[in-house]
Computed example of a mutant assay.
Amino acid sequence: MKRLFRIVSLIVVSIVIVAVLTAQTTTTITTTTQKKSKTVRVSADYVEPKSDVIYYKGRVFVNIDEDKVSVKTTEMYVKKVGDKWKTVEIPVKAEFSFDGGSATTEKMTYDLDNRTGTLTNSTVTIVDSKSNEKIIIITDTLNYDLENDRYNGTKKGGVSITKGDITAVADRFEYDKKKGELSLFGAVVINDPKKGVKMTASDAVIYTEKNDMKANNANIELKVD
């Protein structure tokens, strides 16, 4: 009987230890922006809150329902500016999901007030609202403004962009999702096999609804069957 009691006790202790080791800490931050208040929900293996910064580590999951934003990462800081929680800084790899798109990035920032930020060494996928095609963008640095659906970025050796059959490379890009305009600047190369067009230019604009284009200082190759 004593032996059975010892075995049961060991099993209970083991279950408690496993539960403690696998438990995650959940924190909720409420911040008031210029427009409305929002709640940032975070769960993590480890959290270290201070008066002006909260540090998270381990399995970190972030969700902001009001912004339609979520993040998965392994390390994160949430910092105050003045008397309110303002900035999110992630110095490691992260998976970032937002309304109409997603990204994988080596590090990122997010402004809780303006829904703006920067991605570093990222691959971003955005569903174009005019054509419903996915636009895939690879950059060294990408700045985003989710409030206005605007994106811009650069990459050493050229930003790589894919939209359906179209591929493009440029030193810098700007994308206005609401207008359906993808602007390319510097050493532009566009290949559109459906139209049978390959073009180099100093700058160009792709109108995303029908993939119409215009360019300056352009050289064009036409494929004629």
Results as ranks from 00 to 15, higher is better:
I90D: 00
L119Q: 04
K195T: 06
A218D: 06
N211C: 04
V71K: 00
S131I: 06
G100L: 01
I220E: 04
V188Y: 07
V20N: 10
I161M: 04
K68N: 15
T116M: 13
V127M: 00
K177H: 12
Y56K: 03
P91A: 03
P49C: 05
Y175W: 06
N219H: 09
S129G: 08
E181T: 07
P49F: 03
K72D: 06
L10C: 07
G58E: 10
K210I: 05
S102E: 00
K156I: 15
K93F: 12
L4W: 08
K79R: 15
T167Q: 12
N132Q: 14
D145A: 11
K80Y: 14
E95Q: 12
F98P: 01
I29Y: 07
D149A: 15
I11G: 09
K86T: 11
Y56P: 01
M1T: 07
D140I: 10
Q34S: 13
L182S: 03
T31Q: 08
Y151K: 02
G100N: 04
I136H: 00
E106V: 02
N121R: 06
Y175F: 15
K80G: 13
V53W: 12
V62S: 00
K80D: 14
P91D: 03
S70M: 10
K156M: 15
I15E: 13
E221D: 14
E147G: 04
D67F: 13
G196A: 07
T32R: 13
N114S: 14
D149I: 12
V159E: 11
E75R: 02
Y175C: 00
N148Q: 13
A94Y: 01
A94R: 01
V124F: 00
